[in-house]
Write a protein that binds this DNA or RNA. Structure first.
Lengths: 224, 224
DNA sequence: GATTGTATCAGTGGATACAATCATACAGCC
DNA sequence: GGCTGTATGATTGTATCCACTGATACAATC
């Protein structure tokens, strides 16, 4: 008995990569709270390695903006201030607007049908109560952006999504079954159906900027 | 005698930070070429430390997209393909367009005057032949974006500038004294003078997308 | 009693040593 | 003759160890 289930087929990555993924996912899921100190030795023990690869993972997480490293004073979980949340959504609006604009030439009836299926799955995931609605939501957006054929752009967008994901979860868990989401994304599909790239870009910008205020409201008290 | 000149006032940062800055600047200045292998021991010896902090600096540089780390196969200098250069300029166009739009409310006659001074300095730096024209050019743009009061946005833009800086240098060194730059940036100032945020945003987008092709032309042969 | 100085302890950063991995070259086999 | 397998060397990745920084608590002095 070496491992169980999927781990048997897991290609053994480097310890650093493992530590990075572990922390990245934990941070995304909101397992730690902003301001928490991440003690290298504890995390190393948790996943069975020494402090060193964990430290290296910290550097990458810091570059992602997920943690802050202060020399000689350890690694703390980064939180977003209210201003930073708004700023993130402003950046998202132009980046994701661009992605949609560039994706437009590749959007046809088949893609629209696929998006509608994803929208249904997203809604079901939301009803089941579990917060993997967030994952489905990201999938919906990423499917559109993927059609732009711009890998760097997609990476940047994904990184921003990770940053705000904990807040998105809090918001979703607080407001049970946000029905507005269905309407919002349906009208987004409508915008895509027009075939007008500039219109779709603007629609996406508005969609994103419209989400910011309600999210910020819930992020404010707890996190700085 | 501990050190010489400015180093006396240099607050001794961590070794990792020192290594990061050293490599960051070397990469920006195009001291290494795309595909070159960075040997941790050589660099460590160069700045008087062990391999360890250098390795940690590599992680951050990889996150910045300046190098690529392949497990067990070392760290190589990242180069941009033609497609990636264009993509970077597309991203820059919307990001820097946003920055200008948000900066507009804070742009007055005094700022315009300052920008004209910077434009003069930029031109002089260009004539003197030295490629610190690039630094002045960045300063000009950064001055505008700084007025937006969006730190995260500025960081992202700065990171993209670093990525393309080696190509910008090649371009500048090849085309002696690009006179078009003066005209280009003057008309950018004109756009700011109108006070129309949407117009200024579009002007910046066009300015950036207009630069891409001539840069890409020179980047193509050498770097992948 | 409050504030400042000092000592101790916890925790981080860096160096060295060791283990594991990959590339290259050579030999054997098809 | 070309290909595959293996062995060796170079290089990366990980762990342990040591030094130093920063925090906290206690004591001494004002």
């Amino acid at each position: 008995m070496v491992g169980s289930g999927a781990q048997l087929f897991e290609i053994s990555a480097t310890a650093e990569e493992e530590a990075y993924r572990h922390l990245h996912s934990a941070l995304r899921l909101g397992r730690y709270r902003a301001g928490d100190r991440l003690i290298p030795e504890d995390i190393a023990a948790e996943i069975g390695m020494s402090r060193m690869p964990v430290r290296e993972a910290f550097r990458r997480l810091a570059a992602d903006g997920l943690v802050v490293i202060r020399p000689n004073r350890g690694c703390i979980v980064a939180g977003l201030t209210l201003d930073e949340i708004y700023e993130t959504f402003e950046i998202r609006s132009v980046l994701e607007g661009l992605a949609v604009r560039l994706a437009m030439p590749h959007i046809d009836a088949e893609v629209i049908a696929e998006l509608e299926r994803l929208l249904d799955r997203m809604e079901r995931a939301g009803i089941s109560g579990s917060s993997d609605w967030v994952a489905r939501h990201h999938e919906f957006h990423a499917t559109i952006y993927g059609l732009s054929g711009r890998p760097k752009l997609m990476k940047q967008i994904a990184a921003l999504h990770v940053t705000i994901e904990p807040y998105l979860r809090i918001w979703f868990d607080y407001v049970e079954k946000p029905l507005s989401a269905r309407e919002e994304h349906s009208s987004l599909i409508e915008a895509l159906r027009t075939g007008d790239a500039a219109f779709a870009e603007t629609a996406m910008q508005k969609h994103i900027l419209g989400t910011a205020p309600m999210l910020a409201e819930f992020a404010s008290p707890d996190r700085r």
